[in-house]
């Protein structure tokens, strides 16, 4: 490779970063033990690493401690062993975050991998997952991630997740769609709607993570919640 031509950087196990980004689109994990990853996000590795599907096997105990949404366990694998492992997802931007005895809720499609110090749970909000505990996790986003402090209102498609925020709620801003003329406008689109009438609102202490585009990552099935009354998205039994 010619350095004068700005040739590519050649990496080996010593020069690959340890639990850090190689470039904005690839993350290098210094594996010594276990990591949880979403299926199919490993692109290459050095060393001795085994990939186990979640289920019955030698990792039963680990999984029962860290994994609390068994219904989508099929989307996750455990990488076990020693070595350097590269993670990437369809050339999307990848970032890692550290949680210290904290919690973070993230859109299911954005989460790529996490350390066993964290435990993964389904969020009450459908389509989102919550990580609780201490450790590092890796998330993908469409464009770079921006951190914002509440109070803030965000576009639903730009929301990646939030940490420590108590109040994710809907907000509608369509005062100009009231009245007879406004009603006609909303129903027919005559006069125009801005497409930004609906937002998510966050207040309280914490951080909100936004991606710099409004193109959503494909959702990953977060599993079904029990069909009980009072459980969001779990339809009550008929006859109750």
């Amino acid at each position: 490779m010619s350095a004068a031509m700005g040739g590519p950087v050649v990496l080996d196990p010593y020069t690959l970063p340890s639990d850090d980004n190689v470039n904005p689109y690839a993350f290098s994990v210094d594996l010594n033990g276990e990591w949880f990853l979403q299926r199919g996000k490993m692109v290459a590795y050095y060393g001795r690493i085994d990939f186990h599907g979640l289920g019955h096997g030698p990792l039963d105990r680990l999984i029962s401690v860290n994994f609390h949404s068994p219904l989508h366990a099929a989307d996750w694998v455990v990488a076990q062993g020693q070595g350097k492992m590269l993670l990437a997802d369809r050339a999307f931007d990848i970032n890692s975050y550290d949680l210290a005895d904290g919690n973070l809720t993230i859109r299911s499609g954005n989460l790529l991998a996490f350390q066993p110090g964290l435990s993964l749970k389904q969020s009450i909000i459908p389509g989102f997952l919550t990580l609780i505990g201490t450790g590092k996790f890796v998330a993908a986003s469409n464009g770079a991630v921006v951190f914002v402090e509440p109070p803030v209102r965000v576009d639903p498609q730009a929301l990646v997740g939030w940490a420590d925020c108590p109040s994710p709620c809907h907000h509608y801003d369509h005062a100009y769609l009231r009245g007879v003329l406004g009603g006609v406008r909303m129903l027919t689109g005559l006069g125009g709607v801005s497409g930004e009438e609906h937002q998510f609102e966050f207040v309280g202490a914490g951080q909100v993570l936004l991606q710099s585009s409004e193109r959503l990552m494909d959702d990953i099935d977060t599993g079904v919640v029990p069909r009980q009354p009072g459980v969001p998205a779990g339809q009550p039994h008929s006859g109750l």
Partner: peptide, 22 residues
């Protein structure tokens, strides 16, 4: 490549495993 390619060195003491799709 779809996203900038990462160039990895393979040497006798460090064999490399690659996902066929990547």
């Amino acid at each position: 490549s779809d996203g900038p390619a990462v160039v990895l060195r393979v040497s006798p003491q460090f064999p490399l495993q690659v996902d066929p799709g990547a």
